[in-house]
Computed example of a mutant assay.
Amino acid sequence: MPAPTPDGWRAVDTYLADLLVGHDDVLEQALRDQDAAGLPSIEVAPVNAKFLHLLARIAGARRVLEIGTLGGYSTIWLARALPEGGRVTTIEAEPANADVARRNLARAGVQHRVEIVVGRGADVLPTLTGPFDLVFIDADKESNTIYLDAAARLGRPGTVVVVDNVVRSGRVADPTARDTQVEGVRRGLEMLGSDPRFDATALQTLDAKGWDGIAVALLTDADAPA
């Protein structure tokens, strides 16, 4: 079996995205506007965005919490998954990013389903009231344990929790990699593995964003002690 190469997995990602995701002028313009505004290109890949969308639908989610809005690309996908009356609450630390996201959400016609809360996640999360049906964590990795604890507090048994960027090009399993983001990811994964409030697994991904992965957890008992 041939080993995967960057050219190979990007070709597969393009094939799958073209076949199963397709093209969407609104979403593609959102990415162009994000790039034009100088935001980093760290949004989820299209196949992963549709995965989030389908997870929200499978879970029957009506209330979604997103930690890390960026330009609103994943927010649009999540908002489109919700039934009438559904709501996404998304937290963004940078006001300029939130401005880009608001314009993208308005163009997508989902602004009525989304509340953008500007501020650091650690500061905003204690002010929110649950329960949320799905929580997507895609912000600073150093705070993953804070975000997971908040997800448990703001969720309910059966809430789906997704954590992005948990492989970090393989560095998560490299004992010599000690940067703060990798350390934050490890602490989050260790929490998912040991905290009785979560039942979790993780998947490696090879896509347009390179070698990374996601953790997916089911909240088992939001009231159990950590």
Rank of each mutant, 00 (worst) to 15 (best):
R107K: 14
V135F: 02
A122Q: 15
L125W: 00
T127L: 07
G130E: 05
A108I: 09
V117C: 09
G109S: 14
S143D: 08
Q111K: 10
A106E: 13
N144T: 01
G119M: 13
G109W: 15
F132C: 03
Q111I: 13
A122G: 13
R107P: 05
G119A: 15
K141H: 08
D133P: 00
G109V: 15
G121D: 09
V110I: 09
T127R: 10
L128Y: 03
D133A: 02
P126Y: 12
Y147M: 01
T145K: 09
L125S: 00
E115F: 15
D140Y: 02
D133I: 03
D133M: 03
P131S: 14
R120K: 15
I137F: 04
L125H: 00
E115P: 12
G130Q: 05
V110A: 09
V135Q: 03
G121M: 11
Y147N: 00
D140S: 08
V135M: 04
T129D: 06
D138L: 11
R113I: 06
V117E: 07
H112M: 13
A108H: 07
L134G: 03
I146Q: 04
D138E: 14
I116A: 11
V124M: 09
R107H: 11
V110W: 04
A139D: 01
L128S: 00
V114T: 13
G119S: 15
Y147R: 01
E115S: 15
E142N: 01
H112P: 02
V118F: 14
A108N: 06
V110T: 08
P131I: 14
D140A: 09
I116M: 11
G109P: 08
P126R: 13
L128I: 04
R107V: 13
I116F: 13
E142W: 09
R107T: 12
E115A: 15
V118M: 12
T129K: 05
K141V: 02
D140F: 03
G109E: 15
T129E: 07
R107I: 10
L134W: 05
I146K: 00
R107W: 07
Q111E: 11
R120C: 13
T129F: 04
I146S: 01
I146W: 04
V114Y: 03
R107F: 10
A108L: 11
A106C: 12
V110H: 06
L128V: 02
A139F: 04
D140C: 05
L128A: 02
R120D: 13
F136K: 01
V124D: 07
A139T: 07
A106W: 09
G130L: 05
D123Y: 05
A139K: 05
Y147P: 01
P126M: 13
I146E: 04
E115G: 15
T127S: 11
P131L: 14
S143F: 03
V135R: 02
I146R: 01
T145M: 07
T129Y: 02
A106R: 10
P126C: 12
G121W: 13
P126E: 12
I116Y: 12
R120A: 14
R107E: 11
T145R: 09
V110S: 07
F136S: 03
T127W: 01
A106F: 05
T145F: 08
V124S: 08
D133L: 01
V114F: 06
D123N: 06
P131T: 15
H112S: 14
Q111S: 14
T145A: 10
V114S: 08
